[in-house]
């Protein structure tokens, strides 16, 4: 059984201030079914196919191709990111396959400075069995647990996962179906169903929308999402995130970032619909 719980870990950020309340360790798992145009870590979408391109380009020889697998030597890495820039497959060779207990060991070295963990990605709900075991272990040592999700996983069918999850931070990339398909390459039926389901069982910590002028009707999305959420009693935070080109693939980097006045206007719209906790990033 333990073998089946090994997951590809892209990276572990010891202290994160942007992945939920307080200081948290953020665990990024590899692999995501969405293909968002503005994705700022596109190298977390897919698993390595061992094409070997990064091995040739690595300036420090940290990567080698052995038995049709790319082997990564952490100590030789100079963190120049050449490997992920040249990858044609939206993957990263710098992946560690780890058990829940191994991840917890790394997390524990950040205690007592953190209050919890946040799993992100990629899309961490690609690995629900890992999450359940990992979160159980986190709870045992007194840490809170949050999931950062694109909403593609049917949470309503996995009570066991929600029992060990303190909250979900859900991305609503676009409210309109066709716009969602345009932004992410997939439909949003499950996302919207999750939004209401998680709100109804008090597991929706936060909803996030990235504002990308020219890509989709973000104003409509924020208004609709706010409308839906205001029906629930709990105080759900709406995080309105400005598009930034950092990390975005070259072909999608030319979108403009919204200015502060525009973000404030959107916050006002959310507020007018009854959202109390609004965070502009």
């Amino acid at each position: 059984m333990s073998n089946s719980l090994k997951v590809p870990v892209n990276r572990i950020i010891p202290f994160s201030s942007v992945d939920g309340p307080g200081n948290r360790t953020a665990v990024f798992l590899q692999g995501c079914g969405f293909d968002c145009k503005y994705c700022h870590n596109p190298e977390t979408r897919n698993l390595c196919v061992a094409c070997g391109r990064c091995v040739q380009e690595c300036p420090t020889g940290a990567l080698t191709l052995v038995d049709n697998k790319v082997i990564f030597d952490y100590n030789k890495c100079c963190k120049c990111d050449t490997c992920i820039k040249v990858c044609k497959h939206g993957a990263s060779p710098r992946i560690r396959w780890m058990e829940p207990a191994e991840v917890l060991e790394e997390v524990k070295s950040n205690m007592p400075f953190i209050r919890g963990v946040t799993t992100s990605g990629g899309e961490c709900t690609t690995y629900p069995e890992f999450l359940k075991e990992f979160f159980r272990l986190c709870k045992d040592v007194g840490l809170t647990t949050l999931i950062d999700s694109n909403g593609s996983y049917d949470f309503s069918k996995d009570r066991e996962l929600l029992e060990v999850t303190d909250g979900v931070m859900l991305d609503v990339k676009a409210y309109d179906l066709n716009e969602h398909i345009n932004v992410t390459g997939t439909d949003n039926k499950m996302v919207l169903q999750n939004m209401e389901y998680l709100a109804s069982v008090d597991k929706l910590f936060e909803v996030r929308t990235v504002v990308v002028p020219g890509l989709f009707d973000y104003e409509g999305t924020i208004a609709e999402v706010s409308n839906k959420l205001s029906a629930y009693k709990t105080n759900i935070r709406y995080k309105i995130i400005a598009f930034r080109p950092n990390g975005v693939r070259q072909e999608y980097r030319n979108y403009n970032s919204p200015d502060r006045a525009e973000l404030d206007r959107l916050a006002e719209i959310a507020k007018s619909k009854g959202i109390k906790d609004i965070n502009i990033i």
Binding site: S17, G22, F113, I114
Partner: peptide, 16 residues
């Protein structure tokens, strides 16, 4: 300006 999360600093102080 990026963080907007004073509790992040609070957690670090409590740990310290």
């Amino acid at each position: 300006t990026v963080h907007r999360n004073p509790e992040y600093v609070m957690d670090i102080i409590k740990g310290a």
